[in-house]
Nucleic acid binder design. Sequence first.
DNA 1: TATAAATTTGTAATGATTACAAATATAGAA
DNA 2: TTCTATATTTGTAATCATTACAAATTTATA
Lengths: 143, 143
Amino acid sequence: MKKLRISIENVKNLLEAKGVKPSFQRISVLKYLLQENNHPSVDTIYKNLVSQIPTLSRTTVYNTLKLLSEKEVISTLSISNTDLRFDFVGEPHDHFQCNTCGKIYDIYEISDFSELKTVDGHQVQEMQLHLKGTCNRCLESLN
Amino acid sequence: MKKLRISIENVKNLLEAKGVKPSFQRISVLKYLLQENNHPSVDTIYKNLVSQIPTLSRTTVYNTLKLLSEKEVISTLSISNTDLRFDFVGEPHDHFQCNTCGKIYDIYEISDFSELKTVDGHQVQEMQLHLKGTCNRCLESLN
DNA sequence: TATAAATTTGTAATGATTACAAATATAGAA
DNA sequence: TTCTATATTTGTAATCATTACAAATTTATA
């Protein structure tokens, strides 16, 4: 939830390290994702960037996110039933979505399935623990 | 994945116990869900039932699933990025979706967060562990 | 039976995502 | 540098799941 300061140079290096050519649009999208740390939707990303990049196309945002996902720079969350949500692939963590305000929070230190490679003969490649309920802010405002 | 035999009478009682008036359509939808045990999409449910109920409307399937969800007879899975998937609310379990064939399998005996009520001050009401990878059938057919 | 309420239905609208081809930018060779 | 091929971006149109909504039908009740 906290906004970080990320340099363009860092994002550029990150992309190159993952084999993605660091175009201006790609740097912008990934930088936004890292800075906001907010699990944004495609629409949120687009609306925030189009003010800085007036020629930006929604399709470019889709293309970029798909590419970054394939290169495992980011991961696609399926926690929302209405739209795609994205997250940087960093330290493993889980997610909590508030049923009231819709915000998605990072949750650390609950699950540890890191050693889990196979279940019932299925080969496990990714795992996500989704928690839902009422977040602490919404709980407060109920009082 | 196994197909069960469920009597209409059982489904009717189940609906009434949860405070849902057991109309023919509602019984049909829930019976299908219980029988197939397959986490079907709305479209799958509709297509399978419309042969028996030619007048069935897709909207009715949506309405019914929404109602059953509200009454906590079924739960809505957010494991698929493309459509809604549904599951009967029975014994707690997790889900594994195959990236190759798209099938969703029930997984028992991995996670136990049953005592988890609060995380970082957020009130937890539901939780889903989503595993993704390659299922045992698809692994076999790769050889 | 008559009336009101609940349920179902079909169509149209919405909104996210994808397909696709034209336009633009980038990289490499001559 | 210029030319050419390749990669990237863009905008529009198509697709597909879901929702809105009002008419039609069914069910319950008086």
